[in-house]
Every structure is written in structure tokens, then in C-alpha cells.
Design a protein around this nucleic acid. Structure first.
Lengths: 224, 224
DNA sequence: CAAATAACTTATCAACGTTAAGTTATCACC
DNA sequence: GGTGATAACTTAACGTTGATAAGTTATTTG
């Protein structure tokens, strides 16, 4: 009657979690999903593949996440969390407003290039769902625990830095919001290009990053 | 026996094409696909919807295109052809090297925002076939009729313009190649951001485009 | 031990891109 | 004016996808 042999054949078949330990399974799903997303991209990483890697059935994922998109959003928050930490550290250690912004750009670009797949997952990619594309919005941070607001926090720090720079007496060519957008777009352009076309014979990476940084900073500062 | 009433009910049911006029149907498909892509985006514009709009069955599309992506690529070629035309026109009508570059940036940005889906597929997409992924490389434009090389031609024109600018006696802060990369990265950053996060409350579009243009041009020109 | 319920599975759905196989209409030719 | 080749097209279906409904275990609590 095949009383019990706990899936001795091929399936991973993770053991059933005990009563209060659902979050463990949730973390397992996130880890598997992250790996698969980075290995194969959002579309190719199907619910069934993720479930297989965890060792459970596909519908089990829906016990822990509302839909596939929610898994993606949770991963975005993880990634943004690390970047937010770095930026918070800069804000604590660096006092000069202009120096802060330079360090921000440097940290941002470096973060993107150090985690190209995660960066691509959040900022690039043509097939990611609507809500994920909205990651980075600055306005509605009504609920800081809501998935997907990590990017908003990052961007809001840049806006804050530029407001402080203006408050410190430096004249800007545009409002702080617009300056922040232009700064981000410039640096993002560099990071995105380097990530998406790694085989292109680009000029030296440091030259491009530093160059774009100089260009953007000089461009927003009103020429004395 | 319902001998013949040619689909008088609801279906569009386009009439069958005569012998040599398959290309007519092909154009109809392209038009319907373009409309639907722009109305609902690449994913939401399903094969069945396109076929419905044309008035034929879904598999009929596969008589004219290898797959869904081939339809998109054909549309890309149409669209990029128009951008190349615009740039060629600029090169013919505008003589001043600096003015040319400004006009290039303006045309490029405007084109990207007018054709977000095509732009995304060629310049941002990460899940697309080899032939398209390498678009933007300046080196190997071996076969100009191959789908997707439009971007390479565009970039090569920018490099040429910057070389001409330098040849005209203007001092640059970087080699022409690097300048072209920085120019493109900056403008691309704006376009990509506006396309990928259309719901973000960005500043005024024209301000951002013109601003980035100013910033990049000023940053490239050696300060006299 | 027994009720409650967290954790999980099987079976199934509609929609997707795509293919196989069959059907009709048109043309060239005798 | 028939006849055969074939362009143009359809119906039926395949394999996957994300997602849901409904049922089944296993654990905890009283």
C-alpha cells in the first residue's frame, strides 16, 4: 500500500512546514524565485518552475503571495533595501551637500553594475508587469511596508539632497525635482547601457561614470 | 443549406485575397498589429486579437510572419526607417556641426517617445533574439537589410557628427567616441525613463529633453 | 481523543503562442 | 470548359502559462 517513503524518487519534495513556520517557506520561495528570475528572466521563470525548485506544488505559492507579480515586488524590496542602506550611510557620514550627491551617484552606479541582473529586473526589461514598472514612484509612500516603494525612497533621498544643496545657497538651473530626475536619468543611462550591451566596445567604464557625473553636476549648477 | 451569405453577422471576415495579392494581407496585418500594439502594448495585443481585427483566423498570421516577434520586428524596421530618414534630412539641411547634434538629439528623443514599443524592443528589451540584441553596435553592419540594424546606423551617424564637430575646430572634453556614448546615454536615459515609467510624475517632458540636451552638450564642449 | 485549522495537493480553468491537417478559391494550361 | 496545381485560408488541437476551487493531510490546542 506504499505506506510511507517520503518521495524517495526524483522530486525535491520539501517536508511540510510545521504550524507557525510558514514564513520559512515564504523565504524559500523568494530565494528560488530570485535565482530563477536572474537565471532565465521574469517570463521564463514560471510558477511551476519556482514551485519545483522549492519542492512544492504550484498552487502552494499562492498561499504566500497573491500572484506572480507579488513575488517580484517582494524581491524588488529586498534589492532596494540594500541600496537604501548604502545611501543612508552616505547621508550619515558625508555632510557637504554637493559631496553627498556625488557619492550618491557613485554608489548608485556602482550598485547597479555590481548587481546587473537585479538592476535589470527592476529598471530594465520589457515584460515586467505594471506594478513593477511603477517601482520608483516618489509620490505615494503612504504605506512604507507596501511592496515596491523601495525605489521611491531612493529617489526621494536624491530629491532631498538636491533640496538641501539649494537650501545651502547653491543656485540650481532647475527645480530640485527636475534636477533629481536629470541626475538619475543620466546615471541610469550609463548603467543601463553598460548592462544591456556588455559586448559593445564602450569607452572606459570609470571614465563614463565619472564623465556623466561631472556633466550632470555641472549641468544643474548655475554657472557662477 | 446556407448556400452563401458572406458572414453577414458580426465577424469582420475580410474577403479572401486573390492569387498574387498576399502582400496586401500582409500589410493589413502589419497595420492592425501596429494599432493594437500602440493601443494595448505588446503583450496585450494577442495574435487572436490582431487576427480578429484583420478579419481572418489566428493561424493565418503565420502564413505571413514566422512568429509574433517577426511582426514587431517588421514594424520596427518601418519605424526606424523613418528615424533614419529624419536624421538624413537633418544632415542634408543643417550645416553647422553643433546645430546638427542638437537636432539629432531632439529628433532621437522625439522619435523614441512617439514609438515607445519599437524603442523598447530595440534599445531596452532583454528577452529578444540575438539579431536584435546586438543592435546599437557600431562595428558590424554587415547586412543592412537584416531586421533591427536601424539602431546601429543611427548611432554611427552620431559618432560621425561628433567627429565632424571636432574636425571643425571645436575642442571636446573627451574623444569623439566617448562623447557620442555620453550623449547617447544621456538622451537614452531620458527616453528610457519616460517610456519605462510612464506613470511616474515626471517634470515636463520638453524641459527634461531640452535640459538633458543642454547638459550633455555643455559637458562635452571644452569650456573656453 | 477531537475539533480547528495551517499547510499542501489534485484537478481544472481560460487564454496564450503555435502547429498540423484539412478545405476552398483562383489561376495556368490543354 | 474541364483539370490539376497551389495560394489562401480554416478548424481543431497541442503544450504552456497564470490562476482558482475543492479536497486532503498533518499539527496544534482544548
Amino acid at each position: 500500500m506504499e505506506t510511507e517513503l517520503p518521495a524517495s524518487s526524483t522530486a525535491p519534495s520539501a517536508s511540510r512546514k510545521k504550524r507557525g513556520e510558514g514564513h520559512t517557506r515564504r523565504d524559500e520561495i523568494l530565494l528560488a524565485a530570485k535565482t530563477l528570475f536572474l537565471e532565465e528572466g521574469y517570463d521564463a521563470a514560471t510558477i511551476r518552475k519556482i514551485a519545483d525548485r522549492v519542492g512544492v506544488s504550484a498552487p502552494t505559492l499562492y498561499l504566500y503571495f497573491q500572484d506572480k507579480e507579488a513575488i517580484m515586488l517582494a524581491l524588488c524590496d529586498q534589492t532596494f533595501g540594500r541600496l537604501i542602506e548604502r545611501i543612508a550611510k552616505i547621508e550619515k557620514t558625508v555632510t557637504d551637500p554637493l559631496e553627498r550627491i556625488c557619492r550618491f551617484g557613485d554608489a548608485y552606479a556602482r550598485f547597479g553594475l555590481e548587481h546587473p541582473d537585479e538592476y535589470r529586473l527592476v529598471f530594465i526589461g520589457n515584460n515586467i508587469p505594471e506594478a513593477v514598472r511603477k517601482v520608483g514612484h516618489r509620490m505615494p509612500i503612504d504605506d512604507p511596508t507596501r511592496p515596491g516603494v523601495g525605489g521611491a525612497l531612493v529617489f526621494s533621498r536624491l530629491v532631498a539632497m538636491l533640496s538641501q544643496l539649494e537650501a545651502s545657497g547653491v543656485k540650481l538651473n532647475y527645480p530640485p525635482d527636475t534636477c533629481a530626475e536629470l541626475c538619475w536619468m543620466g546615471i541610469h543611462g550609463v548603467v543601463a547601457a553598460l548592462i544591456m550591451k556588455p559586448d559593445f566596445p564602450w569607452s572606459n567604464r570609470e571614465t563614463l561614470i565619472q564623465g556623466m557625473q561631472d556633466i550632470v553636476i555641472n549641468g544643474i549648477l548655475s554657472r557662477a
